[in-house]
């Protein structure tokens, strides 16, 4: 884990999104986003499908490039073409809806490949780190299992371990429970909750309103490419100020 001193860089703002616009062809997906995320915040993004939540999340580690605007991570403008994006991404873990584990590698191999090839960590140490992370997500006994031999929940926990093994400063979760069978959702949410309690900075796109209320320290409601609510989760859930947010919550709760 990074030290708290590191986290205080740029006035506690780990991520700053400034004037972000995104077009896919003629489709205007993000329409002017300005958000600062502070270290140790657990920011939960909710909103109807197609509102731009996932795109916003993927812009933080530049899996999507903003058409306009700047992304500042840890005091560095990472939208600058001279920035080494690959290096920046080693500090930002991401977990996807579809797990996206490498099917030809074991659980341990999924974790060690980036440690060895990107961080250039010796393979003994990489394996040790992988084992530690798999233990942490409760899968020490599945070290040698291939993704095809694991349940969805187990695969998703391996994916979380894979991201954590890089010792990122921040984690992005993109609807990570949406593809799971209902009985497997809890094990993944519990892992995320532990991570939040340890002080990890998290940006979470989710439909799990319970998680948003209970674990989130900040809630963003998005609709039509804009952030319409930004505040305390409990506050927003009990008394949403925006009309569209009120309608949305009335539908999902």
């Amino acid at each position: 884990m990074s030290t708290s001193a590191e986290r205080m860089a740029s006035d506690g703002h780990l991520v700053q999104l400034q004037g972000i616009h995104k077009w896919f062809g003629d489709l205007h997906v993000l329409k002017g986003i300005d958000v600062d995320i502070q270290a140790s915040q657990v920011v939960v993004v909710i909103g109807p499908s197609g509102s731009g939540k996932s795109t916003l999340l993927r812009i933080v580690n530049l899996l999507e490039e903003p058409t306009e605007g700047r992304v500042v991570f840890d005091g560095r403008d990472i939208t600058d073409v001279r920035t080494n994006v690959n290096e920046v991404r080693t500090h930002i873990g991401i977990v996807f809806q579809g797990y996206n584990l490498f099917p030809h590698k074991s659980a341990q191999g999924n974790i060690t490949v980036a440690l060895e090839k990107v961080l250039k960590i010796p393979s003994d140490e990489a394996r040790e780190r992988a084992a530690d992370q798999l233990t942490r997500v409760g899968l020490a006994h599945k070290m040698d299992a291939y993704p095809g031999q694991l349940s969805g929940g187990q695969q998703q926990r391996v994916a979380i371990a894979r991201a954590l093994a890089m010792r990122p400063k921040m984690m992005l979760f993109d609807e990570v429970t949406s593809a799971l069978d209902p009985e497997l959702v809890k094990e993944v949410l519990d892992t995320m909750k532990e991570l939040a309690e340890e002080g990890m900075t998290m940006l979470v796109v989710t439909h799990e309103m319970g998680f948003a209320r209970e674990v989130g320290t900040r809630l963003l409601f998005m609709d039509d490419g804009r952030i319409l609510e930004d505040g305390e989760p409990k506050q927003i859930f009990s008394n949403p100020s925006d009309q569209r947010c009120r309608d949305f919550l009335a539908h999902v709760l």
């Binding site: 690959n86 996807f96 490498f102």
Partner: peptide, 21 residues
């Protein structure tokens, strides 16, 4: 699947590394 490339890039791999591994 596209997600395989995104997962590899998300871990900080270059395009070439993502292809190779």
């Amino acid at each position: 699947e596209r997600g395989q490339l995104e997962a590899a890039r998300g871990l900080g791999m270059s395009y070439g590394q993502a292809m190779r591994y």
